[in-house]
């Protein structure tokens, strides 16, 4: 193979590709951080996390239909859809998970898997099998040229959302009492309970926040995709890989993992478009061969 491909890296197209890759990273990060949060504190490998992402997208569709497709409808969808998902997760947590925290991982794993099937069928019953599309608000329509290449405005918006969510998460985890308790509970839940803290309540809040993030990811992705049954399948797999290479339960690991996943993918496509999808998975293999427990410290 010649070194021709290196020339790509000096071309302005690479800058564009990195930006596109980063915007893709945002959705992955938002969903994966929620997964990681739940995994770290509650020790639940939540397969149904992807279904909540799908429900978030469907709820965004419903809100945009009810309110109308304009910019107000869009913002309402971005806020109401994740809240709706949070409500669903609250019911599920209080009704079922809160009673099963002491069970083995494999049992919880199977339980969340069964939930992903139940949620899938519920979505079909409520919304049906037709293709749905959330209209893009006028202000986000179109693209702007970067070095002559069209860059969708919505992807810029996603680039902004990523850091905002990351900073908010950092504040919640590091600057609030709740965050501190949840970090302590992640390390030793019995001890936290022994000092008189209502661990069950903390778990509930963390679970709801994690699922809120899944819903947010779904609502954010809704205007650019076909909102349809099965949209959760690909994403949940990628999110698990991201959480694993980042370090189980570490939300900064989720950030790092998403960056690795998104960027190896977008740059891989530049180098070898025909087999671009291989690159992120190759990166996962490389990371795991050198750091089997993930890049950052796992809370497990």
């Amino acid at each position: 193979m010649s070194l021709d491909f290196l020339a790509y890296f000096y071309s302005p197209g690479v800058v564009c590709q990195i930006l596109v890759g980063l915007s893709r990273t945002v959705i992955l990060f938002i969903v994966a951080s929620g997964l990681s949060l739940i995994l770290g504190v509650l020790r639940i490998p939540n397969i149904a996390h992807g279904s909540l992402y799908m429900i978030g997208a469907f709820m965004a569709y419903t809100v945009s239909r009810v309110v109308g497709g304009g910019i107000t409808g869009y913002w309402m969808a971005i806020i109401l859809a994740p809240l709706g998902v949070a409500l669903v997760s609250f019911i599920v947590e209080r009704g079922i998970f809160s009673r099963l925290y002491e069970r083995e991982h494999i049992m919880l794993f199977l339980l969340t898997f069964s939930f992903s099937l139940v949620f899938g069928d519920l979505v079909k019953m409520v919304w049906g099998a037709d293709y749905r599309s959330v209209p893009m608000p006028t202000s986000f329509q179109g693209s702007i040229p970067i070095f002559g290449l069209p860059f969708p405005i919505y992807n810029f918006f996603l680039l902004l959302m990523g850091p905002i969510v990351a900073v908010l998460l950092w504040l919640i985890v590091n600057k609030t009492k709740m965050g501190k308790i949840s970090r302590a509970a992640a390390v030793d839940r019995e001890m936290v309970g022994a000092v008189g803290i209502n661990v069950s309540l903390v778990f509930c809040i963390v679970f709801v926040i994690g699922c809120f993030l899944a819903g947010l990811g779904g609502a954010l992705v809704a205007p650019i995709v076909n909102v349809v049954l099965g949209m959760d399948h690909t994403l949940i797999m990628e999110c698990f890989l991201i959480v694993i290479i980042g370090g189980l339960g570490n939300i900064w690991g989720a950030l790092l993992g998403s960056l690795i996943f998104g960027l190896t993918q977008s740059l891989g496509i530049l180098i070898w478009p025909q087999f671009g999808i291989v690159f992120p998975y190759a990166a996962v293999i490389v990371v795991l061969s050198f750091r089997p427990t993930g890049l950052l410290r796992s809370t497990w």
Partner: peptide, 22 residues
């Protein structure tokens, strides 16, 4: 000129399409 393939269900196709524009 070339071929690009992505996974079924891929949400954001921008990383795939941008190099084709180039």
């Amino acid at each position: 000129l070339g071929q690009t393939w992505w996974k079924v269900g891929e949400a954001d196709l921008a990383p795939y399409i941008t190099p084709i524009v180039q």
